[in-house]
């Protein structure tokens, strides 16, 4: 790990001033950043510790039915907040399907959005990576790439964003609250992460010094609470990143879909909202044929970036399963294995 200076500002204003200094990085809990620094992948010269900033650790259930989640709220505290989990069960399920209990006790809301890709070539400083070293090339192209992107990738980068949490948040129209040297602003989570294009080193819309202060869920997101699920296919039952995941949230009336929200995870360098599939489902009977058609629509632009063509059909099936489970109704208690295909649940349709 490189040497660095350490600052622990007491106010948000001091934090964004320090965070705008050259080669500064914000430190929340460090579950990803410490790992990257130990591997020499991240080499900040100043760590700005935001852990003691006032007001960032609050979960606010808003009177209109929405919620505001402070950037320092720990994953476990959010997932186990009973009233939050009742309003947004797919978000709780996604959180509890991620990482391990120890990591969820530390990892934060803002940090989850800003976690880096798990592409092995990004982590290996001996490999070429355009994201880590712009212009160096991409060893994932033509390398071990069975887990890489099937949507939105470019010749310069085929990595994926690994978050579970961001997938239902994107489906539910979450908004990211930012504070920077120029003041506060808001960005839809759907627009927060950038596709790689020719600048894979630029991962989000954050400007220098800008800090995530909160993530907000709109009131309408709670309308899906009765039919909201997250499904995640992993290469082992627990404590693994997704090969493919999907969040599905439905509103049903007499067996007919009146509103649908679908997003996919680990298929692209950002959580992938499937708006065309949502539109196709509206007005349809909630049955297997409609779900399969929605899944076809969700993946209509997908193509392999390497040895990962299997992920396209896998993603379709994960969408179908998530929709089927959502249609069956959110369970009163999350299954012992959240988001797992091996939970023993029987899906509707």
């Amino acid at each position: 790990m490189n040497r660095f200076d350490y600052a622990r500002p007491a106010t948000l204003a001091e934090a964004v001033t320090a965070g705008a200094l050259p080669n500064a990085a914000y430190l929340a809990s460090g579950t990803n950043l410490m790992d990257l620094m130990k591997g020499g992948v991240a080499r900040p010269s100043l760590l700005v510790d935001i852990g003691r900033l006032p007001g960032l650790d609050r979960i606010e259930l808003l009177e209109d039915g929405g919620a505001r989640i402070g950037a320092m709220v720990r994953n476990a505290d959010l997932a186990y907040h009973p009233a939050f989990a009742r309003r947004f069960p797919a978000v709780a399920e996604a959180l509890l399907s991620g990482a391990s209990a120890q990591l969820r006790n530390a990892a934060t809301t803002g940090g989850n959005l800003l976690q880096r890709t798990r592409c092995a070539y990004f982590y290996d400083t001996a490999s070429a990576c355009n994201k880590r070293d712009p212009g160096a090339g991409c060893d994932a192209v033509g390398g071990e790439n069975r887990l890489h992107a099937i949507l939105g990738f470019s010749a310069q980068c085929i990595a994926t964003h690994p978050s579970d949490f961001c997938v239902p948040l994107t489906a539910l129209d979450a908004v990211v609250e930012l504070l920077g040297p120029q003041g506060p602003r808001e960005v839809k989570l759907e627009d927060f992460h950038l596709l790689p294009g020719s600048t894979p080193e630029r991962e989000t819309v954050l400007e220098p010094g800008e800090l995530i202060t909160a993530v907000r869920l709109p009131a309408a997101a709670a309308d899906f609470a009765a039919h909201a699920r997250y499904v995640k296919i992993r290469e082992r039952t627990s404590y693994a990143f997704a090969v493919v995941s999907a969040a599905a949230c439905l509103r049903l009336q007499g067996g007919v879909v009146t509103q649908a929200r679908i997003a996919l995870g680990s298929v692209a360098l950002k959580p992938w909202r499937a708006r065309a599939a949502e539109a196709a489902l509206c007005g349809q009977r909630a049955d297997a044929a409609a779900f399969r058609q929605a899944a076809e629509t969700a993946l209509q632009d997908a193509s392999p970036s390497g040895d990962n063509a299997f992920k396209i059909e896998l993603a379709r099936r994960v969408v179908v399963r998530a929709l089927s489970l959502a249609a069956s109704g959110t369970p009163a208690r999350l299954p012992a294995l959240p988001a797992s295909a091996f939970s023993g649940e029987v899906a509707h349709a």
């Binding site: 350490y6 622990r8 430190l27 809990s29 460090g30 579950t31 410490m34 790992d35 130990k38 591997g39 760590l47 510790d49 852990g51 476990a76 391990s100 209990a101 120890q102 990591l103 006790n105 530390a106």
Partner: peptide
């Protein structure tokens, strides 16, 4: 690197991976 759990301790009553926790913070 936060993958094995051998370094688990309780900090303020909560289990975390001590290998990923900066002492200063």
């Amino acid at each position: 690197r936060g993958q094995c759990g051998a370094c688990t301790i309780l900090v303020d009553g909560r289990r975390i991976n001590s290998c990923l926790a900066l002492a200063l913070s």
